Computed example of a mutant assay.
Amino acid sequence: MNKLKLLTFLFASLLMLTLVSCSKDDDADLSKMDLLTGGEWTGHQFWTSGMNVTDQLVEFGYKVAKSKANFSKDGSYTMKYDGDLVQSGNWEFGSGEQTIILDEGTEDETIFTINKLTSSELYMDGEVSIDSEGYMSLEGEIRLKR
């Protein structure tokens, strides 16, 4: 009976290890384009000066989790807040796929530096508008999740 329990435990451990390692392998097989355009991103946290200020932004009426971003393979993007369209236009990679450039060559051009990009997480440094009129912005790292 002890051998059966040990065999069951080893099989379960091997299965868990296989399942955990598959997600990392899947990301390695995907291009940055596929990772970025694989679905809608939802705001998770905002960091500035090495501090997580997500909760403090609520005092200004901005809830990071209400922010949504969607990048399409055709080069278009949309940014929404609380379901309302805030910004849309064209995007492209820059600096060897290390940056995302929104609306290049226009007065609305914005560049985000990609700090992390996986199938479930996108961390970008840049300037983010935290009000609907675009008057108040904050420089830092926006962390998004799927």
Rank of each mutant, 00 (worst) to 15 (best):
Met1Phe: 02
Lys3Val: 11
Lys3Asn: 14
Leu4Val: 13
Leu4Lys: 11
Thr8His: 00
Phe9Trp: 12
Phe9Glu: 01
Leu10Cys: 08
Leu10Asn: 01
Ala12Cys: 11
Ala12Asp: 00
Leu15Lys: 03
Met16Asn: 10
Leu17Val: 02
Leu17His: 02
Leu17Arg: 03
Leu19Arg: 07
Leu19Lys: 02
Val20Gln: 15
Cys22Asn: 10
Ser23Phe: 09
Ser23Pro: 00
Ser23Thr: 04
Asp25Phe: 14
Asp26Gln: 02
Asp27Thr: 07
Asp27Gln: 01
Asp29Thr: 04
Leu30His: 11
Ser31Ile: 01
Ser31Tyr: 01
Thr37Gln: 09
Gly38Thr: 01
Gly38Cys: 02
Gly39Lys: 04
Gly39Asp: 03
Trp41Gln: 05
Thr42Trp: 00
His44Arg: 13
Gln45Ala: 13
Gln45Asn: 05
Gln45Thr: 07
Gly50Val: 10
Gly50Pro: 06
Gly50Asn: 07
Gly50Arg: 06
Met51Cys: 02
Val53Ile: 10
Thr54Val: 07
Thr54Leu: 01
Thr54Asp: 10
Asp55Gln: 15
Asp55Ser: 13
Asp55Arg: 12
Val58Lys: 15
Val58Ile: 11
Phe60Arg: 12
Gly61Pro: 08
Tyr62Val: 04
Tyr62Leu: 03
Val64Ile: 13
Val64Arg: 03
Lys66Gln: 09
Lys66Cys: 00
Lys68Gln: 11
Asn70Phe: 10
Asn70Leu: 15
Phe71Trp: 07
Phe71Lys: 00
Ser72Trp: 00
Lys73Asp: 14
Asp74Ile: 08
Gly75Ser: 08
Gly75Pro: 12
Ser76Gln: 14
Ser76Ile: 03
Tyr77Arg: 08
Tyr81Asp: 06
Gly83Leu: 06
Asp84Leu: 03
Gly89Gln: 02
Gly89Glu: 11
Gly89Tyr: 10
Trp91Ile: 06
Glu92Ser: 09
Phe93Asn: 01
Phe93His: 11
Gly94Arg: 08
Ser95Pro: 01
Gly96Gln: 10
Glu97Met: 04
Gln98Arg: 15
Thr99Cys: 13
Ile100Thr: 12
Ile101Asn: 08
Ile101Glu: 07
Leu102Val: 11
Leu102Phe: 12
Glu104Ala: 12
Glu104Gln: 10
Glu104Ile: 04
Glu104Trp: 00
Thr106Met: 08
Glu107Tyr: 06
Glu107Val: 07
Asp108Ala: 11
Asp108His: 13
Glu109Thr: 04
Glu109Phe: 06
Ile111Leu: 03
Phe112Val: 01
Phe112Leu: 04
Thr113Asp: 13
Thr113Val: 12
Asn115Thr: 00
Lys116Asn: 14
Thr118Leu: 05
Thr118Val: 06
Ser120Thr: 10
Glu121Arg: 03
Glu121Val: 13
Leu122Asn: 00
Leu122Cys: 02
Leu122Phe: 01
Met124Asp: 05
Asp125Gly: 09
Asp125Trp: 06
Asp125Arg: 08
Asp125Met: 12
Asp125Glu: 14
Asp125Pro: 00
Gly126Val: 11
Glu127Asp: 10
Glu127Trp: 15
Glu127Phe: 14
Val128Cys: 05
Val128Glu: 12
Val128Pro: 12
Ser129Cys: 15
Ser132Met: 12
Ser132Gln: 12
Ser132Pro: 12
Gly134Glu: 10
Gly134Leu: 13
Tyr135Thr: 08
Tyr135Lys: 10
Ser137Ala: 14
Ser137Asn: 13
Glu139Ala: 14
Gly140Gln: 14
Lys145Glu: 15
Lys145Asp: 08
Arg146His: 14
